[in-house]
Simulated scan of single mutants.
Amino acid sequence: MKTAESEVPDAHFTVDKQNISLWPREPPPKTGSSLVLRKMCTVRAAVILLTLVLLASVLLQAVFYPWFMSALSDGKTNAQLLKARVANISSLSSEIKRNRGGVEAAGVQVQMVNASLGRVHSYIRRLETSVKEANARIQILTKSWEDVDNLNTRIPELKRDLDKASVLNEKVRGLQSSLENIRKSLKQQNDIIQMVSQGWKYFRGNFYYFSRVSKTWYSAEQFCTYRDSHLTSVTSESEQEFLYKTAGGLIHWIGLTKAGSEGTWKWVDDTPFDKVLSRRFWIPGEPNNYGHNEHCTNLKMPSLQSWNDAPCDTGFLFICKRPYKPSEP
């Protein structure tokens, strides 16, 4: 028996993927019993291997299944969180779009504020310059306080001098007024002398020219007009007296006329006609419009009542009247 067992060779096998190879240490003798034994060993080894694989698979499932399920749950949670974040991002995007207009308006306002700040800064700089100038003036005024104090002490004296000066000014103004009146009087006298030298006579602010040739009333008025005057008007008893006395009893045309037989009397120099005053100057019974052709007036008598109406185309001496106008200096 021992000899037989010692002669049986030891079996060896290798596993390469799913193939199982068995070989003896030494090549076995090629007998029928050996082949059967070899197949049984191969089947046994395969069963053992499959058992080991199943055990390994069960162990792997027992170990990795909880981890896999946990990982899957975490993935779902992360997916939900990611979805919520995406929704938040979408809402934030729409909010950003809505606020974009407000941001642009705020940008415009910021620009306006910046411009206003620029103007304020410029104004502040001008104020600073003004303050510097004011400080310089204050320093000058401060230096002048001593002079002001000196002037304050001299105010009573200056006031007395001012009073004296005021009195002197009044006297000077009085003298100036007197000198001006004298100047005007001398100038008037000079004007009067010049007019008198030309044949005019002066009476109470008017010059009168007593002609030496006879003319019709219209020709006489034309003569006076050429000399910046008119046939004389009469506005007072003193003027009437001056005229008839200077006329010396000779008939002279004056500037009183009327239009038509029923017309009203008027002065040719547009002086208002005073009917009440004129009644004192007509000769009694005049004006009578004799022959319905006496439309002009003359001085006929050497008396206060000396006016007479006569035909305008009759030739008489005449009197021109010209108001005094100061000549140019």
Rank of each mutant, 00 (worst) to 15 (best):
F64Q: 06
E221N: 09
C224N: 02
I89L: 15
I283C: 01
D191C: 09
P323C: 03
Y202F: 12
A87T: 10
N150M: 11
E128P: 11
T3R: 08
F316V: 03
K325D: 01
T3P: 01
T142F: 02
T246K: 00
V148R: 06
V131P: 02
S219K: 05
R38M: 12
I251L: 04
D163N: 09
L141F: 13
N114A: 15
V58M: 10
T3Q: 12
K187F: 00
G102D: 12
I182H: 02
D228L: 14
Q111M: 09
S21Y: 11
Y218D: 14
V120C: 10
K300E: 11
E133F: 07
V15F: 10
S6C: 03
G205P: 05
T142L: 02
S90E: 15
I193A: 15
T232S: 02
I251W: 03
W253G: 05
A259K: 15
W217M: 01
V113T: 12
Q176N: 06
C312Q: 03
S229H: 04
I138S: 00
K171M: 08
E241T: 12
N293I: 07
R119K: 14
S6K: 13
K164W: 03
Q188N: 13
G107D: 09
G199W: 03
Q188A: 13
N152T: 06
A71H: 12
N293F: 01
S327L: 06
S236Y: 06
D161Q: 13
T14E: 08
E157N: 00
D309V: 01
V58S: 10
T31A: 13
K39F: 12
L299E: 02
N114L: 12
Q61W: 12
S21E: 10
D163L: 02
A259C: 09
V36S: 00
E26G: 04
M69R: 04
G260C: 05
K245L: 11
K97H: 14
V63L: 10
R119A: 13
G260M: 00
D274P: 01
T153Q: 15
S197F: 05
S238H: 04
V86P: 00
Q80D: 13
N206D: 07
L151H: 05
R98N: 14
I193W: 11
C41A: 14
E294K: 05
S144T: 07
T14W: 01
D270M: 03
I96F: 15
F64W: 09
C320L: 04
R154N: 13
P326A: 07
R322A: 11
L243K: 08
Y244A: 07
G260H: 07
N206M: 04
D269W: 09
D269I: 03
D228N: 15
W217E: 03
H295M: 08
S91M: 07
S33T: 04
V43G: 14
S236V: 01
H12E: 13
I20Y: 06
G255D: 06
F210H: 03
A136T: 11
T51M: 01
S70T: 13
V86K: 08
D74T: 12
H252K: 05
Q198T: 05
G291E: 05
